[in-house]
């Protein structure tokens, strides 16, 4: 079902750009969780047969990405009573342009000699690269702690897409790695966001500037 897979991946690429261009933090959180759900479905459509372990891993991944992480972040938003805008370091339009450049670069990159093989025909590798790069852009150009965590989650989504290529050969490693990464994401959100909020009455990392040269 390569067409269905590629359709989902195109939507994922589009969601990347939406996440970069959206000014409302709540929407960005929802976009990224939608991306996570789509990706969680991918292993089930990609490989013809479905094992119980794969189903379980996909289920846990989707529950974490679609329900637990977004609701924790939305709760933190509410509790912190912070402004609901994103506050980027660079404007939204430049962010989108950067993201589009990253996507184009990723699509070109896989046509390099030595990388072309059957997987390169599908969009898996370029979408993975593009999503990792967009995650990086989100991480480095946003001030709020929550936005940075969102960037981390997008980065993690990109790695997950690459993991799809390996999931048949190394199911355990891929599933364990991805779930552990998500767990770390939750750990970071819950502990630090709560404490930053309590100590600084804000989730803005611009307050975290006492340690510098």
């Amino acid at each position: 079902m390569p067409n269905l897979v590629n359709t989902i991946l195109v939507i994922v690429l589009a969601l990347n750009l939406f996440a970069l261009g959206n000014s409302r933090l709540m929407s960005v959180i929802r976009i990224v969780s939608a991306q996570g759900v789509l990706l969680g479905l991918l292993p089930l459509v990609m490989h013809g047969h479905i094992t119980i372990a794969a189903l379980l891993a996909a289920g846990v991944g989707i529950i974490l990405k679609a329900i637990i992480i977004p609701s924790m972040m939305l709760r933190a938003l509410r509790d912190a009573d912070i402004k609901r805008e994103v506050e980027p370091l660079i404007g939204f339009l430049p962010s989108i342009i950067l993201g589009a450049l990253a996507t184009g670069f990723s699509l070109l990159f896989v046509t390099l000699p030595g990388l072309a093989d059957e997987a390169a025909v599908s969009l898996v590798i370029p979408t993975s690269f593009a999503t990792v790069l967009v995650g990086f852009i989100l991480l480095t150009t946003r001030y709020k702690a929550i936005s940075q965590v969102v960037g981390y989650l997008v980065l993690e989504n990109g790695i997950f897409i690459f993991g799809l290529l390996l999931v048949e050969a190394l199911p355990l490693v891929v599933e364990m790695g991805v779930l552990l990464d998500l767990f770390v994401g939750i750990f970071v959100i819950s502990i630090i966001v709560n404490h930053i909020n309590a100590a600084f009455s804000s989730l803005d990392t611009r307050h975290l500037v006492s340690l510098k040269e």
């Binding site: 981390y152 970071v188 630090i192 930053i196 100590a199 990392t205 975290l208 340690l211």
Partner: peptide
């Protein structure tokens, strides 16, 4: 130390 931990974790 919160700031340091945040940077370390991120």
């Amino acid at each position: 130390s919160i700031e340091a931990t945040w940077k370390y974790l991120l």
